[in-house]
Design a protein around this nucleic acid. Structure first.
Lengths: 254, 254
DNA sequence: TAAGTTCTGGTCGACAAGACCATAACTTCG
DNA sequence: CGAAGTTATGGTCTTGTCGACCAGAACTTA
């Protein structure tokens, strides 16, 4: 036992300046839907280490700001998007050697956005790109540092949050149809959902989607024009959609 | 990691050695049941800052270990308990000024244990004590740093995990009755659960409690001796117990 | 033996959710 | 213009889950 009399775990006469120094960064996994698939925003590194490899955007925390503020600042800097409410801290990573230059602990944040594509193109762009999550995770693309693990954890978290909260509306536009919302779930989970049942769940759960009264223009393939909704409250408790692949009930087709 | 050329925040040629230095600590919220109430392990600080105030145990991360290893090491040092599987990272805290001496970012871990009392008494003890969570959170007790917030977040997390996983078995002894397990849920959630229904849920959910064949000695108040179980797998997906206070369905009595 | 207490299994009704069908409202094509 | 195709959306039916409640079993103490 180090000591109870001093700072937890530290002798009372320890010189604070001699504590092992770390750099603290805030890294962000920015997810979005594009062409029906889940994408993650990656930037290409220009300098060593890992020059030429892809990485998730992020930056160093400043002593004068909180972690959340640092994440929000980085999000604005990297994408121009100012919606801190979408940022969610989901893990800390500090394995020795994860950065060959020095000791770095990173706090990882998750952001689920729409229209990142255009934003990215407008700001810095040259080296920022949306990559399908499937590609980023199956080894096709070499991620710098331990960013592959971070992205993997983030996607896992989103799958879970989609089940428990109303995050899905963050993936779609300011107004959307039930089918668009359903497409988000199907893409993230890789399953097919019944349109009628999905609609019932979404509409019944009062407050989390709000009808606008307008209707969408039917697609080029025809069909009845769908009702347009806008997002209601985002984070809710008993989630609207339950993951179908639950390890529950026998092996029923449901 | 920001090395993107043109990042407004950090030039690419920034000298790594000049990045703001932080101390990184690992703090632990150790929860246990005692006398039917949820308790948290606190240590009393002997030196400034916050001398005399209570704090959660923790310590500095070493550059050669991972965050999880640091947490495990601290847990052993503080309580003598070596059960890393119970440790769960649940948040990072880095507000400026949270430690008046220097910039400190802490990674917070959660451990749910039984019998901490005896362990604590046996090791260092003098200044370590189990405090009812209710007292620690209602301002009765002055916690150092931002530890009140950390404890609050941890308890919130446990409430949620209790709903989604089989954590509850970590609170009870190596063998236990259904009633003991039910008491854990009732204490953490502050609700009353129907004994018969609870038993059905627990026993039906195959694998997470295992009958030993033995029976408990009836309490001094009499009654049928309860069946004894031992814990099965701990972390599961679709949790066995759903929190009754869900903000769902109208205001039905269920 | 009687009374009390706890455990434990059973039943019932409410409700949630998925499968499936039917119809409505639009498209394009002939 | 009408027919066929496509999508949206509502209805019904069945199944499974969960809580409320009751009853009996198995022990205690008096």
């Amino acid at each position: 036992m180090t000591t109870k009399t001093g700072d937890p775990g530290v002798p009372a006469n320890y010189d604070p300046a001699q504590f092992p120094a770390f750099a603290v960064t805030v890294d962000m996994v920015i997810l979005t839907m594009s062409q029906g698939r889940l994408h993650v925003l990656l930037v290409r590194r220009g300098v060593a280490p890992f020059a030429g490899k892809w990485a998730i955007p992020g930056g160093f925390k400043r002593p004068t700001e909180t972690l959340d503020e640092a994440a929000k600042r980085e999000l604005v800097e990297e994408t121009g998007v100012d919606s801190a409410s979408l940022l969610k801290q989901f893990g800390a990573y500090g394995d020795p050697g994860r950065d060959p230059r020095m000791n770095v602990v990173t706090i990882a944040y998750l952001a689920v956005l729409r229209d990142v594509g255009s934003v990215v193109a407008g700001t810095d762009a040259a080296d920022a790109q949306l990559i399908p999550v499937s590609q980023a995770l199956n080894g096709k693309i070499d991620l710098a540092f331990d960013h592959a693990r971070i992205v993997r954890d983030a996607v896992e978290r989103v799958r879970l949050d989609l089940e428990l909260t109303g995050i899905a509306t963050a993936f779609v536009g300011p107004t959307f149809t039930v089918a668009e919302l359903r497409a988000v779930y199907e893409a993230v989970w890789g399953v097919q959902l019944d349109g009628a049942n999905f609609r019932r769940r979404v509409v019944t759960e009062s407050g989390w989607v709000i009808p606008t009264g307008r209707r969408a223009r039917p697609g080029s393939t025809g069909g009845k024009p769908a009702e347009l909704f806008r997002a209601g409250r985002m984070w809710k408790q008993g989630g609207p959609i339950r993951h179908p692949q639950s390890p529950d009930r026998g092996k029923g087709s449901q």
